[in-house]
Design a protein around this nucleic acid. Sequence first.
DNA 1: TCAGAAATTATTCAAGTGTATAATTTGGGC
DNA 2: GCCCAAATTATACACTTGAATAATTTCTGA
Lengths: 214, 214
Amino acid sequence: MTRRSFHRAPEAERRQDLITATLDCISELGLQGATVREVATRAGVTPGLIRHYFSSKDQMLQAAYREVMTGMTSKVADAADKGQSSACARLHDFIVANLTPPVADGRALSLWAAFISHVRVDPDFAEIHRESYLAFRSVLEALVADVLTEAGQAADTKRCQELAIAINGVIDGLWLEGTLVGDLFSETPLPGIAVRSVEVLLGGISLAADTQQT
Amino acid sequence: MTRRSFHRAPEAERRQDLITATLDCISELGLQGATVREVATRAGVTPGLIRHYFSSKDQMLQAAYREVMTGMTSKVADAADKGQSSACARLHDFIVANLTPPVADGRALSLWAAFISHVRVDPDFAEIHRESYLAFRSVLEALVADVLTEAGQAADTKRCQELAIAINGVIDGLWLEGTLVGDLFSETPLPGIAVRSVEVLLGGISLAADTQQT
DNA sequence: TCAGAAATTATTCAAGTGTATAATTTGGGC
DNA sequence: GCCCAAATTATACACTTGAATAATTTCTGA
C-alpha cells in the first residue's frame, strides 16, 4: 500500500487554500459542516495538515472570518476610489458596490451570519467583528465628510458620525434584504432605493453619476 | 438502581420548554452547541424525550426558528397598536420597539444570525425566513400607507412598497448596529437616529409623539 | 382501585469529531 | 546526485453526536 503523492506548496498559498475551503464549507453546509475532514478534502489535502498551519480548528475559523470581512471592506473601498471624480460619485459607487455582487450575494451573507452568530459565543470573534465594523464605518464617515464639504455644508464630527451611522444602517439593512430575498426585488432594484434614501438623508444632496439613466 | 422520577407535562408546555432550551443553547453556545443532550439537560429532561416531541433534531430547530421570528414580529406589531392615537405615533412606536429590548438585544441577534446562516443550507429554513420576512414587511407597509394618507399624501401601492423597503432597511440596519456594537452608541441613541431618518425618508413628515423630549 | 395508554427514562449503537503522534515523502542547497 | 529540514500523510485515540429500542413510570378514566 503506497502513500498518495503530494506537492509541497508555499505556506501562503496553502493557507489560502485552506481558508477558501473553510469558507466554502461554511456557506454550503453551515458552521457545523466546516469539519476538519471536510475542509481538508475540499482543499485536496489530508486532515492532519490543517494542524500544521493552524494551531486549532478555531484559529482557522478566525482566520477565515478575518478574510471575509477585510475582503468585503476592501472591495467597497476600492469601488469608492476608482472613479476619482467627485465625492458624490465616490459615495454613489460605494453604495452601489455594497448592494451588488460580489459583496451582495448569498454566499457572503451566509458567511457573515455564521460568524456573527458566534460573536457572543467566542470573545475572539467579537474582537474581529469590532475591528472590521470600525474599519468599515471610518471609510464611510470620511466619505460623508467629503460629500458634505463638497456641497458647501458644515461637516462637523458629530453630524458626520450620526449620518454615517444612519447611512450604514440603510446599507446594511438593504444588503440584508437584497441578499436574503433578492428575488422579490426584480422590479424595484435596491441600489436605486439605497441611493435615493441616502440622498434624502443627506438633506437633498444629489449623488447622481454623470452616466446615469433611468 | 432506581430510575429518576419524573412528571408528565402537557404536550404544549413540554414542547415550549424544549424550544426555550434550544434557543438558550443556540444563543450561548451557537448552533453547534444545541445538541440533543445539552438541550435535554437544560429542559430538565432525558435526551430520548426530544424524539418523542420532534421527529428529528432538525425539526426542533425549525420550530425554534419559527418561534423566534413570530415572537419578534408580534412584539413590534403590538407596540404599534397600543397607542391608538395617530398613524404617525404608531409608526413611531413601531420603530422604537424594533430598536429597544427585548427585540434589540444580543440574544435575539445571535439567534437570528444563527438561523439566517442556515437559510441557504436548508430549504426548510429558507421557507420560514421568507414567510416571516413578508409578514413583517406587510405590517410595515400598512403602517406607511396609514401615515401617508394621514398626512394627506398619495399612498399608491408602488410608493408604499418602496418606502417600506427603505424603512425596513433602516430599521434592520440600525437593529444590527445597535445590537452588535451597542456600547459604541451610548451618546447617540439609535431610536432617535432611526426616527429622524424615517421622517426624512417620508419627505419630512414628523413622527414626534406628544410626550417627546430631547 | 386498577388497568392501560402514553410519557419518560435507560441503554445501546454506529458514525463522526478534534487532536496527537509517528511514519513518509518532497524539494532545495551543497 | 544526495542529504536533511520541513511539509505532508497515515494511523490511532478518546470523546461526542443523533438516533433507535426496550424498559419503566405516570396518570387518567372507568
